[in-house]
């Protein structure tokens, strides 16, 4: 199924919650959705017989300086099509629903986005830091992150 058809199906079902289609210059094309509706749209994309997006290939956090985004790269093993889903988040207190009950593989990648960007995934069953130590301060991949001078008495 082409991205345009997927976007039309999603708008048909969810109306204004699907904001736009980023098709030109994006591979795969991205359906931009409002952050609070990520989980229900994810469930629809997974369970609809025409979509069947059964595989979450990649979940990433992005820092655009004025705002954050979370992107989901989806692939359907049975149908063989791909689509991206993107949700823009405000700079202050970014949070959106977790999709780890839709695709269990999302958990580690959500933890990584939380660890390095500080994006909170509400309803996740295990949202902890995954790469950095538990007592690390700040989220290093943010553009405005300042490196600490010492960590545990060792120069950074």
């Amino acid at each position: 199924m082409e991205p345009k058809e997927i976007f039309e199906k999603v708008t048909e079902k969810f109306g204004g919650k699907a904001v736009e289609l980023q098709g030109e210059g994006f591979r795969p094309a991205f359906v931009v959705v409002s952050p609070e509706s990520v989980r229900e749209i994810a469930l629809f994309l997974r369970d609809d017989p025409a979509m069947k997006f059964d595989s979450l290939m990649c979940l990433s956090g992005v820092d655009y300086k004025d705002r954050f985004a979370v992107t989901y790269h989806l692939h359907s093993l049975s149908v063989g099509h791909q689509i991206g889903v993107k949700a823009y988040l405000p700079r202050e207190a970014p949070s959106l629903p977790s999709v780890d009950m839709v695709w269990p593989a999302a958990n580690f990648q959500e933890r990584e986005a939380f660890d390095l960007y500080g994006i909170v995934f509400e309803g996740s069953w295990d949202l902890r830091r995954i790469l950095l130590p538990e007592d690390w301060e700040g989220h290093p991949l943010r553009k405005d992150y300042k490196y600490p001078e010492f960590y545990n008495g060792i120069k950074v």
Binding site: L131, Y145, K155
Partner: peptide, 11 residues
């Protein structure tokens, strides 16, 4: 790099 120790002789 914020996460790598700059030489194991610091430890």
């Amino acid at each position: 790099s914020y996460c790598v120790v700059k030489g194991v002789d610091l430890l």
